[in-house]
Amino acid sequence: MTEPSPQHATLLRAQDYRRMRWKNGAGWTTELLRVPDSDDWCWRLSIAEVEADGPFSVYPGVERELMLLAGNGMRLCFEDGVTQTLSPPRGSLRFAGERPLQGQLLDGPSRDFNVMWKRDEADARLWCRPLVGAMVLFVEPGETWVLHLLSGHARFSEESGLGRLESGDTAVLRASRRRARYAVDGAGEALLVRVEERGER
């Protein structure tokens, strides 16, 4: 009997993402992925296009990490008096979603990658990496790795079933019962997100 492949991967194309206008009219959210795909998600990936200064939405029980993708940056002014700045080229900040804050743009609109996860149910990390030639990702059972291609092109090995990625596409990489190995080759820049869920919801 042949053992099932440990790989379980899906490819999300840039043209299929959901793009939504903010209720306050100050920007747009492009949702890449939420797990599970419901309002009661455990973790969520999105891209924000910020067009004007304004308050951030409050998310009790949620951890967040923002990374600047484009623009001259944004100042995050928390209600408790702390101020942090997302500076070019890839400034980032992790913070609690229940902390009230105002976003102040620095000389024009910004575009930001946003990772959110419920801290009692998961943990997440975000990296930005150049993609130069080959790279191998190892995914353990219970983990999900996401590769979002910011620029350039990439191709996963044939056994993954993913094929070629263009700029803006996202690969979601999982393992079944044992560690999975994903090999990717390309040129450009990628965001990597690792999410570890904590048991049953």
Rank of each mutant, 00 (worst) to 15 (best):
P6Y: 03
G27M: 05
A190S: 11
T2Y: 04
A9G: 09
Y182F: 14
D40T: 13
P141W: 10
P4I: 02
S167I: 00
T170Q: 10
L69A: 06
R178P: 02
A175L: 13
R111I: 01
A190K: 08
E65I: 11
V172Q: 11
C128P: 00
A175S: 15
V146D: 00
D112V: 03
S5L: 04
S176V: 13
T10P: 01
G25F: 07
D40A: 15
S157T: 09
V50C: 11
W28T: 06
A9Q: 01
Q102A: 05
A134Y: 00
W22I: 01
F113H: 00
M74G: 00
Y182Q: 08
V172A: 10
G108P: 02
L66I: 05
E121Y: 07
L149P: 03
G188H: 14
G54H: 07
M1I: 04
G152M: 11
G161M: 05
R18M: 01
T170Y: 07
G91Q: 13
V115L: 14
G91M: 13
E65Y: 04
P55R: 12
L105E: 07
P130C: 02
A9S: 10
A180S: 11
P36S: 08
S5E: 09
E200H: 13
T10Q: 12
P109S: 02
A9W: 01
W43H: 11
D80A: 12
E189S: 14
P89D: 08
F56L: 03
G133V: 05
Q84N: 11
S92P: 02
P100C: 05
L32M: 12
P141H: 10
G73L: 02
Y59Q: 12
H8F: 05
V136T: 14
A26E: 00
A190D: 09
F78P: 03
D169W: 06
P100W: 09
W28P: 00
R19K: 06
L191Y: 08
F78N: 03
G54K: 04
F156C: 04
A175I: 14
S57R: 11
S57E: 11
D112M: 01
D112Q: 01
P130S: 08
T85N: 06
A122I: 02
L33V: 04
A187H: 15
V136H: 03
R75Q: 01
R174D: 13
G199P: 11
R179F: 02
W145F: 04
F156N: 06
M1G: 13
G133Y: 07
A171G: 08
E197I: 03
S5R: 05
R129K: 07
V132R: 13
G27D: 04
S87M: 10
G142W: 02
P109T: 01
G27C: 09
K23T: 05
R181Q: 12
P89G: 01
P60D: 14
L137H: 09
F95Y: 14
F78H: 12
S167R: 08
